[in-house]
Design a protein around this nucleic acid. Sequence first.
RNA 1: GGGCGUAUAGCUCAGUGGUAGAGCACUGUGUUGACAUCGCAGGGGUCGGGAGUUCAACUCUCUCUACGCCCA
Length: 928
Amino acid sequence: MTLPTTFDPADIEQRWYAHWEENGCFRPARPDAEAFTIVNPPPNVTGSLHIGHALDNTLQDIVIRYERLRGKDALWVVGTDHAGIATQMVVERQMEAKQDKRTNYSRDEFVDKVWEWKHESGGTITRQLRRLGCSMDWSREQFTMDEHFTKAVLKTFVDLYNDGLIYRDKRLVNWDPKLKTAISDLEVETQDLKGNFWHFKYPLEDGVTLDSGQDYIEVATTRPETMLADMAVAVHPTDERYASVVGKHVVLPITGRRIPIVADEHADPELGSGAVKITPGHDFNDFDVGKRAGIAAGDMLNMLDGDANVCQTADGLVPHEFLGLHRFKKDGVDGARELVVQRLKEQEYLIPHIAKTKKGEEVEHDAEPRQIATPFGDRGGVVIEPWLTDQWYVDAEKLAQKPIQDVRDGTIEIVPKSWEKTFFNWMENIQPWCVSRQLWWGHRIPAWFDIDGNVFVAESEEAAQSQAGEGVALTRDPDVLDTWFSSALWPFATLGWPEDTDLVKKHFPNNLLISGFDILFFWDARMLMMGQYNMGRAPWPKLYLHGLVRAADGAKMSKSKGNVVDPLGLIDQYGADALRFFMASMESQGRDIKMDEKRVEGYRNFATKLWNATRYCQSNGIGASTTVKAPKAHMAVNQWIIGEVQQTSADLDTAMADLRFDAAANTIYQFAWSRFCDWYLELIKPVLVKDDVQPPASDAAIAETRKVAGWALDQILVMLHPFMPFITEELWHAQGALNGMDRSKYPLITAKWPDPRAEVSKDATDAIDWTIEFVANARTARNEIGIPPGTKLKAVIQDPSDLARKVFGGNGAAAMERLSRVGPFIMTGQIGDHNVPGPVPKPAMEIAVGDDVVLVDLAGVIDIDAEQARLEKALEASRKEAKSLEGRLSNANFVERAKPEAVEKAKADFAHHSAEVERLQGALARLG
RNA sequence: GGGCGUAUAGCUCAGUGGUAGAGCACUGUGUUGACAUCGCAGGGGUCGGGAGUUCAACUCUCUCUACGCCCA
């Protein structure tokens, strides 16, 4: 097949992906090979591929393709997460659009509808991962609600319960009144909002006064509506102002409830009046104060229902006009907050805030304006209400101990290391994890209650029944588990645990986890806990955390800002390979990635470059290699490129071992473009091109060059494949076809990684280095003195070094002539044992290469001034360098104390620059 | 309030105790039988400010400033 003249990613991507998937290339059977395992962070089944997924999955795919090429039994586990809240929201929203709602159905009917939705629409993100080229094992695609996965979840819950690590407790939870479910601390996002701080008088009970004679206590609050459930006023134990009234009571306005004044360290004497109202049922701090004051959780007053509307408290003191009101203004309608303020103001319990205008006039306001840290639910987006309910909790503190130890003693390495502190900080202060959710979609909690409220926890109803005894009526807990509870089992439940399968044996623990730092606590830390609990060991030895992909201006991408970059759009425009390469090359450890579309474009250009290089090879009979080992090479240029391949593969291995994706990408980029295309292909042109002027190269030389070039290109394709899988696979097959090989049974995706062993002579590499240096210097010189590109210049080399003689003895001269437009070359003076007299061109442009000087004949070409300026510029530079080095070398401290290597280098550099100064002075003299 | 991170060329970013690099952008130029999505050459940086350690600091330490993130 001949390659089209331009590379069109869209033309090949879909074809190769299908080929790989249909032929089982993502996980070839390698029963005896060492395992390498990564589990993919399961995206929400409702999800679609965003730029963060593109980064996360590109990095994982690079690693897994690399390990697969290195011969490992590479398994990349993939699947989706049932995403309790998100998925239920999606389906409910669809129902709403049809004037329908969840509660029109039974629980089972609704869950069936969610499954229906999943089967119809749940495959979006998995299709998109394919477009990115991700080589996951789709044959074992997982879902967190698969039957075997559910079994793992239930077993874990029951085991934790039996070990006392899961328990039921009545305490305040973060209640999302929109979704009407509890959520965990991590799902709460605090935002600073502009709000109000109201000051109220709470009247002291008849006759009691403060020492100052004041008959009320001033309290301040940002949440006045909660006063309907106030149960105390707290003052600091050392606060003299209130010492005399501790133990006395105030009578609340509106409800008339008589509540005590308690001493508690929570009250900050510096803040406001120093006295705070205590609502144990609706505030986390107050809950603790209430408990310390001896109020049992069950006795704490609750004034809100699940929608955060006011309900009657247990003591029946909330006036009728408040019942049913929302907690605060909603949809433009005043709520309990506004009414409480209004009533207190009417009854003169409100202490107005006095503000001064710019002119110094005093103005009264109901409240003091203030920034308030307000908790929001990350999914529902409404203000969280601390609410007193019974929920299931995981004793995270106990489960965190072993993971903490694992990280501390190096059993688990976190990359970059700077995240360790954050990890410890969170793990060491971890709170009980609320795992029950008041939803219908998810893993239903395996707990059954009898009518007296006794609980029976078991993996099945039968087992629970046998615990409870025959005939005891049981009802199952209606709640489901936090989605993260199940995804915490992902590294082993996806392999078949709790069955002791071969997969579990071979692929657990996994080898590496790659995730964004944003889910370090949500997911990574919980996998560590569950891995230790269920498997007795860490689920992976290494955790690589990458950053966020930001918009070009550095802002966080978000739908509301409208600055979201769609990875699929980039794939359409530049190809998946270019997007992937961009992600890799930008991924240095510990930094967010700023979107830079120009750079994606640059990597598309790189793909095109490689495409064209391959086309060139093909047109010169350079096709696929049959060996992984480098072919035998005699010619310097061929030995040189073999050495360069060796170096590149070594550098690449180092970068991959360090998980330096940027270094790895740059290594292969530089090699392919700056070494292979820019130099090697140019240097071998005289060998391959049938040019009347040049003596044709020998058949052996042509054959060797074709072999080596084909091999080197193959090595590029292999090394680049993890980063750019599509174009490399396409070219791999094209190269095979050129040599009449059918590589369809030997696709690149499962080919062999370069074998770096090869013998390369130093003479050969020195010769090419000399050649390159000459060409580069000649080009620069020509440019600087303005010699037209087309002008050919004759040259003389006086007293050539052995190295120079070798260069000209081989094919070097033709290549140099071609690339520098300098030539032909004549050697004169002392050549080995002979002395060959010859003309010395004058005026001449002197080009230094290593120990040699090439005299380029400028007769009739330019005015001397330009060359003189060039030489003077170089002379100035060498003088400056020499002077600086001389200064350093004359410093006794440096010579005595610096490392010997540094001193040696300085001496050598000084000698070199001194010689240059001399040479350039001579050249100027000769010119004049 | 606590913790972490970042500050290097116009832009986006690498980097090392021995005197600074890539891509893009910019300037000049198009001779070479793959490639103008390209080639060749070039200009451009007191490595955020200050102090210290050292023979030597962009690199290590301290401090200041600015920006960002996380936790409370």
